[in-house]
Design a protein around this nucleic acid. Sequence first.
DNA 1: TGCGGATAACTG
DNA 2: AGTTATCCGCAG
Length: 807
Amino acid sequence: MAELAQVVVDVPTMQTNQPYTYLVPAPLEKQLQVGMRVAVPFGNGHRQVQGFVVGFSEHANYDGELKPIAAVMDLQPVVNTELLDLSKWLADTTYSFWISCLYTMLPNMLKSKTQRFVQVVDEVDEQTYFDLFGGKDECDLAELQGDPAKVKQLLKLQRAKKVEIDYRVTDRAHAKTVTGITPLLNFEQLEDARTSLHPNAHAQNRLLSYLQSIVGQTVKQTTAEQQAQLRAATFNQGAKKGWLKKVPVEVYRNPYAQPIDDDHLEQPLPLNPDQERVVQAVDQAIDGQWSQTFLLQGVTGSGKTEVYLQTIARALDKGQTALMLVPEISLTPQIVNRVRRRFGSQVAVLHSGLSNGERYDEWRRINSGDARVVVGARSAVFAPLDNIGVIILDEEHETSYKQDDMPRYHAREVAKWRSRFHHAPLILGSATPSLESRARALKGVYQLLRLPHRVNQQPLPPIEVVDMRPEVQRRGESNFSTKLLEELDRRLQRHEQSILMLNRRGFSSFMMCRDCGEVLKCPNCDISLTLHLDTRTMKCHYCGHEEPIPQVCPNCHSRHIRYYGTGTEKVEQELHQLLPAARIIRMDVDTTRRKGMHEKLLRQFGHQQADILLGTQMIAKGLDFPNVTLVGVLNADTGLGLPDFRASEHTFDLLSQVSGRAGRANKQGQVIIQTFNPGHYAIKDAQAHDYERFFRHEMELRHQAGYPPYYYTVRLMASHPEEAQAARAMTSIHQQLVANLAPSTIILGPTPRAIARMKRRYYYQIVIKYKYDPHLHDLLQQILQETQRKEFKDVQVSIDPDPQYFM
DNA sequence: TGCGGATAACTG
DNA sequence: AGTTATCCGCAG
């Protein structure tokens, strides 16, 4: 009875999106487990690819000859059965490849790296041999790839069967090691060495008695140096004399700037009655193992984080683990350190700032059970925690929880899946819940918990809305109203700080010719290029195309070419002119691109090294600076003009969030919002701090227009290098949909996408709105299959369930 | 995805 | 004929 393994191979195509059957060679039979990575031969020739074992069977439902697994890549499974099931569900619900889902759950380091080596198998004349191999018996094909002449030569030799290409799947996962020392002699032998020492050899004497204290152990050399108060040189001598041996010790890379002392952890803070109620409700669910979803709606500053921490503590006390998700943008050192100070070294943090190695090590700490609390952004929802007691998803309305390339998953839905699997409660926290979540809470699908009061008893800061229309008429094109300038100046006098936010949503600087109106566009995509002053180039945000700033109009050669739009740089310049005394820190993608800059700028601001923090959306969340008493929003309404049904919601959220940055401590805060749309309900409701009124108003509009949460939506996209082909494919799909969907389902399109051309491809899309359509999922899967046929050659079809945008 | 086999196109 | 470019189908 030969065991057969089902393997999902690393070839992300529709064709190969299924397990393949492989023979398990006898020597591997004992160690091979489901969830391990393997190297398998795949395709013609000797190509090897990486794959995941997803199951075992006794019979293959395949008539052809089976090939054996070439090698096992892991000692332990890298996906447990929970995550394996989850990956399958994810592939199904997001219309993605199974293999892509498996990889998104794992750190990058576990991706395979296939190397191709060329080996000589027959006589080759000396000259060519030396040219290609440089004296070695094999060479890495990747190193030759840049030289077409050599590749040609090789192919010729291969045809003549003089060389062979050897495929090897190698692992890029490397644990970091440091030097450790281990005594080679036993206690008595060391004692003998010690007595025969020269009386002046104090250092060696100390080394020997230290070694006696660690017989049978391995200690990191750095630790040993500290403990024994010795220098590296002494250890080298010890090694030479045969007293000790240097060995590599595996360590976890340490991504934390701050060390943590597990013996002096912070105690929980006292709770107010509201918090108490919330914690009790969740604790009850943890104890009862209910996979209940809670919607925790708490105003900014109401102490949500403390609630999270205490529910995590509850889970840990019961021997369980906890998962806490926050948007990348608010994954600041402030919040991370707070969690670490409470729970110490059992906290693992996963965020985009980690290097591949650091990420891999944090993942291993979780996988091994060393880390029991995980804090991280979207992809941390796949953290390999066992026995989860509670899952928290903070700022649940944030759009960054939805991944916008394949697999297009929403962390909230994955969190729900895991909550069900582990019988653990899920807390969705927000000051401004998404309409979807709030509507579910109304229907009782989620249990609504509220924190209506701020912990410091401070009222929410008064918000003043400044109508910019008369301002512009009076003062010309300035980014600052008289009112805002006055208030900024007042903070300068009082040595208080201000935060200024420039809403960059729907907004960029572009070049336009004032004579002919020509706008500089990307040659590959259908959008205008954005001006970047730091690199002095025009860049395309979609494909990365870059070109120098033109001096004359490429169309009419006029010199009257200038850029439009306000960027943070331009605002900073204006601010310098208007308030020369103000010290300004600018935070945007350009100033925070380098690792650690985000943290550094915030630290500077926290240490009062600047009066004004000027930034984009990234400063709206999670910051807590007690000396900030003024928050200004320069342009509240730029997002409102977008063709996006969530535009009002995003604007309301943003204004509510940023308002919460003012007056966090005992000083009264103030918020000034500049807008050209002072009458818009999103702005008026934010001004009144009235979520409920906004919710009712927005729900009414969504109801009328047939948008979520009244309808579920799916977006289908088809692209092709030729516009007509993309349109033709979409029309054909459209016909199928019309013929098969439920009558109550609404189909919008096909239409060219707002950005019709990207990366040299034309895009068409269809949006499906439905309330209940049981066949929709199968139909979409079927359509995906059919687009593999040759009349759809070169057409790429992708499906986005519950899209964030319809644009 | 990436390879080999088939086929078409090219070369002297 | 022999070599090179291009397209297509397929993988256990």
